[in-house]
């Protein structure tokens, strides 16, 4: 999120300058959201690379001895909850664009709950593993995946939650009963932020498909 301009200390702004700043801020949120996804892709790609590298090396025949498998139900539950949260975030974002703040909030809070449950399951799953962390190449990368997934869920849920909390305070600007006010700068910025957040969730859902397939199915 960009920060608001400190008007008390800033120089006088012409309307054009204010417009320029606003567009730059919205642009920053937009490109920042995409760049963040790019960074996150490289992070997850390191994990994917590790998985396939160790799998193909199979050093000491220890890639996956004894057919180790992480609990499948947990995997599917976590992934489906992630997808649900992502769909809710995207749906909420679309409703918000139409001016329906209430829909956004209901969808969003449901999404937060999905994210939190997924997070809980992802952590609790450590209790249910049939192997210890260093048992094999697979078990190691699985732990790495679990840690990264916890990170993803924390980031995604936190981001979703902050937009919801913000929307409660921004009710007036976001339209609702007075749609003409939704052109306010704060509302525009807010919607840009929500769009970036929804994109990130979408990214998590798509990336999660690959990761879930790798770690639970393959």
């Amino acid at each position: 999120m960009t920060e608001t301009f400190d008007k008390s200390r800033g120089p006088s702004e012409t309307p054009e300058e204010r417009e320029f700043e606003l567009r730059a801020q919205i642009g920053s949120i937009w490109s920042g959201g995409r760049l963040f996804i790019g960074m996150y892709t490289f992070l997850l790609a390191s994990l994917v690379f590790s998985y396939f590298y160790l799998r193909s090396s199979n050093n000491g025949m220890e890639w996956r001895p004894h057919n180790q498998h992480a609990p499948l139900y947990y995997g599917w539950s976590i992934y489906l909850l992630t997808v649900a949260a992502a769909l809710l975030a995207i749906y909420g974002q679309r409703r918000l664009r139409k001016g329906d703040v209430a829909d956004f909030q209901v969808a969003g809070w449901t999404g937060v709950v999905c994210g939190l449950v997924a997070l809980f399951l992802q952590i609790w799953e450590f209790q249910k593993l049939s192997f210890y962390p260093g048992a094999s190449g697979y078990s190691s990368t699985f732990i790495g995946f679990a840690v990264m997934n916890i990170m993803s869920l924390v980031i995604g849920t936190y981001w979703l939650e902050t937009t919801l909390a913000r929307s409660l305070r921004l009710r007036r600007e976001l339209g609702g009963d007075k749609p003409e006010l939704s052109m306010a700068a704060t509302a525009q910025e807010f919607r840009a932020g929500v769009a970036s957040m929804a994109y990130f969730w979408g990214f998590l859902a798509i990336g999660g498909a690959l990761l879930t397939a790798m770690f639970y199915v393959m």
Binding site: L54, S57, Y132, P133, S136, G137, S139, S140
Partner: peptide, 18 residues
């Protein structure tokens, strides 16, 4: 860090790492 702390074997060749 995971290798050092919770004893995964990402970089331990003997245990399936590399």
């Amino acid at each position: 860090l995971l290798d050092k702390t919770i004893q995964t074997s990402f970089y331990v060749t003997e245990h399936g790492g590399s």
